[in-house]
Design a protein around this nucleic acid. Structure first.
Lengths: 199, 199
DNA sequence: ATTTGTGAACAGTTTCACAGCG
DNA sequence: CGCTGTGAAACTGTTCACAAAT
């Protein structure tokens, strides 16, 4: 591992993460850039270029070993990271028992909702807390990332709160654009937005 | 409206769609590129450039009229479009009563699941069907877009099926990369992927 | 004075072309 | 031969600088 994953161009990073996911359920021993291209729709030359940037140590002239690729992509950022779910409405609750984060470097450590009732009736593999304990729990559990599943109208307020707790990044599932200090990374996953992009 | 929205650079399109969403709940009469920048994190020059490409007819030298912007962004593709939800597990079910698609050009016309039981017990504002009626319903209801919320292992199979029904675009909420003919648009909304991109 | 509108400069990303390897 | 590895070329997207508008 020569190159640091973080320093790769972000479009390359994105593809490599997806490629890794893809290979986890690909059951041949080796794969060629042409085959990856068929499966993903990316140009074969682009894939080779990505792997070139990653400085894959040895991808013979007859395809790559899947195991190799997965390992190389993994390694850059394999350290375990903790995250939480903020907002336990229908959508947030749906994420509680899905094995959302399986095969990954993330552990979900907490769920939060401002409605005490939700916190008490829902079941999950990790503890649920009322929103006013956010600051405390995030510190205690060393949580660095959050999935924001509150309603649109509560989005900004909760994002701000997470920012104040020192969170590093947010997966924003609301339709709102968040106003946050720019050192905080945000990935927007609005379904409505995505539908509109399909047009 | 001089320029066709579809023909704008895709990054510009993306921002304009988000901008529109943002303005819907912004309650001043006018807004400047500087203010938009504060709210969104995009450079003010970038916003002006985007609006320049959209050929906003009249954005005085003292800010834009919000109403104007919303309208201009709207108009390009204001035609009503139909979509459906495929997979009514926890995640899919969570989308049934959210006002997911409010304030938009989309109408949800159907939900599908291969498990008859799910189809029968769930309640929603639109009809739910067993998956084997997909072909028929998609034709009948003139559905062009789909939100895919099945399990990872069923993702490719269902995507293929949607493709065969002539769907135009898919919002893919699974962690799998879909292999589809490239005329079918796909937006990937994997939560796990997004978390990994935050690193 | 402040803010838009706009082309030109700059940065990032993808594709191409082809040498070298197995 | 088919495949990777790699720099260069082509393309796309973003930022800058500044004239024009009020």
């Amino acid at each position: 591992m020569i190159k640091n994953f973080k320093d790769l161009p972000s479009s390359t990073k994105k593809r490599l993460i997806q490629l890794r996911q893809m290979l986890l359920s690909y059951d041949e021993e080796k794969i060629t850039s042409k085959k990856i291209s068929e499966l993903s729709g990316w140009k074969d030359s682009l894939i080779r270029h990505d792997l070139f940037l990653l400085k894959i140590t040895k991808g013979v002239s007859n395809g790559y070993f899947c195991k190799d690729l997965i390992q190389q992509i993994n390694l850059a950022e394999s350290e375990q990271k903790n995250c939480c779910i903020v907002g336990l409405g229908r959508l947030g609750a749906a994420l509680l028992d899905e094995n959302l984060v399986i095969n990954s470097q993330f552990t979900i450590k907490a769920g939060f909702d401002s409605n005490l009732n939700r916190v008490e009736i829902l079941r999950s593999n990790f503890p649920l807390y009322p929103a006013n304990e956010m600051q405390f729990v995030i510190k205690k559990e060393n949580i660095e990332y959050a999935i924001l599943t509150v309603s649109d109208k509560d989005a900004q307020q909760n994002a701000k709160r997470l920012a104040d707790c020192g969170i590093k990044g947010i997966v924003n599932m609301t339709n709102k654009i968040l106003s946050l200090p720019k050192e905080i990374r945000v990935e927007n996953l609005s379904i409505l937005n995505s539908l509109q992009l399909l047009l």
